[in-house]
Design a binder for these strands. Sequence first.
DNA 1: TAACTTATTCATCAGGTGATGAATAAAAGG
DNA 2: CCTTTTATTCATCACCTGATGAATAAGTTA
Lengths: 208, 208
Amino acid sequence: MSGALPPLRRGRRSGGSDSRELILATARRLFAEHGFDGTSLRQVAREAEVDPAMVHHFFKGKDELFAQSIELPADPDEVLAGVEELDPGQRAEAIVRAVLRLWESPAQHGLVAFVRGTIGSKAKTALLREMVARTILSRITAGLPGSPEEAKMRGNLVATQVVGLMLMRYVVRLEPLASASQDEVVRLVAPNVQHYLTGELAHPTDSQ
Amino acid sequence: MSGALPPLRRGRRSGGSDSRELILATARRLFAEHGFDGTSLRQVAREAEVDPAMVHHFFKGKDELFAQSIELPADPDEVLAGVEELDPGQRAEAIVRAVLRLWESPAQHGLVAFVRGTIGSKAKTALLREMVARTILSRITAGLPGSPEEAKMRGNLVATQVVGLMLMRYVVRLEPLASASQDEVVRLVAPNVQHYLTGELAHPTDSQ
DNA sequence: TAACTTATTCATCAGGTGATGAATAAAAGG
DNA sequence: CCTTTTATTCATCACCTGATGAATAAGTTA
């Protein structure tokens, strides 16, 4: 039990270090696991073995850290590239494939974080709604036959199916769905998505 | 500017009061809007115009308050009553109707809170998974033809569609879906749910 | 009326939170 | 070499969190 502690390690560490990346990686993981509110800067710093003040040195604050952690998971332009040009009759499979590919890419952590953080608060949910409506649905429903109102509803229905699929497979991890192969998932759900896109939307019942 | 402040109001208020219910109602609303972590006891107390300590007087702590706030939204037995006895070929409409009815009942606040609180954390998501698998899916897939594995997958697929629908309609509030009538929603999505229950699940493609 | 129970508030605790500014050490640039 | 920039840590701040125990007032019961 010596009294002399090792000399203070204040100041720059010798030898290059990538603390910034380390912090980001840790933040990504923790945000994905516990959401925005459930993750503290100090927790990130602790697990990255770094002083809490470093987080403020590299990022302006918690918000910026979060923003950079989820590094918007690739813009929809890229993910849905080519979908618009496809014949509506074949669009469903392309959409489902694109979504599965995205969620099984390195972006997965960030996406889970995004979903958790976004559904947890009313304000953020509103942001999500705007974003989904403008960037994603418009692309999916481009060039559908029928009235614009009908196209919007078709887009909404596609969203219910696709979002439900992502949530159950990647967030809730329901089995056996979570372990099924991409091809199998496409086979199973693409037909229903296609039905929402171009199928006959049930006739208003005559009764009522 | 009299020096004499109004006498301290410590002690029981005269006239009956229903602070307990007031706290519960406020908690329900706030949990639904901001989730579990995003809601503090003091915030609940403030908006209920009550001292924070009252919350501890009536409930053991934040966890118990949360638990009582979401007052498990009616057990699945009740909500899905009768679904098991229905012919699988007609089950879809009953399921969708039951879900819509539930979400447009007074339980809605609690349900939104439950979803927000539950998706926000990994641990709670695991609880949700167990609960959904045991209590809901088993009921929905009872008596389906085919292997047990196939029935489980069919149940999973139904879950993707139903959960996606609830999320988009009641949590994200995507339009025009959120404003559609119950009957219209049933007409639009029940056929796809029925397909998951009893339809032909696409043949393994010969290629691959 | 006296004793007891319940409702209500106050004062306070220990601990976690995000944030800031200064001190120190290494690296980079001149 | 000296200067500037960058990385790192420390010591704090003010604030909010959930929680507890005691003080007080009203209702309830004996």
